[in-house]
Design a binder for these strands. Structure first.
Length: 176
DNA sequence: CTAACTAAACCTA
DNA sequence: TAGGTTTAGTTAG
């Protein structure tokens, strides 16, 4: 498990990855030290033996390109942040949900219920909510673009203030 | 296996 | 808008 701390316009972010793809990308913290603590906590919380299978040979990962894209993102640019994700750390259901979320483009939004319907469980919105909450690769898996259909904007692991900030950055509106 | 959790949605008034 | 009901998957015991 590789780890690094990168600098972004919004602070310092910790990330970790395997030869398969990204595992963790945290939201920026004010200091590198804070970012490191958050990263360590995120890694400790990972399920034990990951089911990572097919490894992509060669190095897909260039820290500098991640750093550059994240910087563009916080600068308000419409970037896709399409980096590979190591899905081996999620349960089957979480993976199905998060892979849907992964496809949501910059500036777009969907609802928990819509994802549930896409997965064939039209009434599974609540289960989708708990699965989305397991996302560890923030921004890369844009779970902030998933909002509640009727009341409110749902929740967010990194705090609702962050969610509002990210949605505003992308010009996404929601009911409040 | 059950029961108590959810980052939801729906129904009624 | 507010409150209660329904709902599906995860997690703890």
């Amino acid at each position: 498990m590789n780890t690094a701390i990168i600098e972004t316009p919004a602070g310092y972010s910790g990330l970790s990855w395997t030869p398969v793809g990204l595992v963790v990308l945290n939201l920026p913290s004010p200091s590198p030290q804070d970012a490191e603590i958050k990263l360590r906590e995120a890694i400790e919380g990972l399920p034990v033996k990951p089911g990572s299978k097919k490894e992509i040979p060669g190095s897909w990962f260039e820290l500098s390109s991640v750093e550059r894209e994240i910087a563009l993102y916080f600068g308000g640019k419409s970037v896709d942040l399409e980096f590979p994700v190591d899905w081996g750390y999620y349960t089957e259901f979480q993976k199905r949900v998060l892979q849907k979320v992964y496809l949501i483009k910059w500036g777009q939004a969907t609802t928990y219920g819509q994802i549930a319907a896409d997965l064939g469980s039209p009434r599974g919105a609540r289960a989708v909510g708990s699965a989305v909450g397991s996302n560890r690769a923030l921004l890369i898996i844009p779970c902030h673009r998933v909002i509640a259909r009727n009341s409110g904007l749902g929740g967010f692991g990194g705090g609702l203030d962050w969610k509002r900030k990210l949605l505003k950055l992308e010009g996404i509106t929601y009911k409040e």
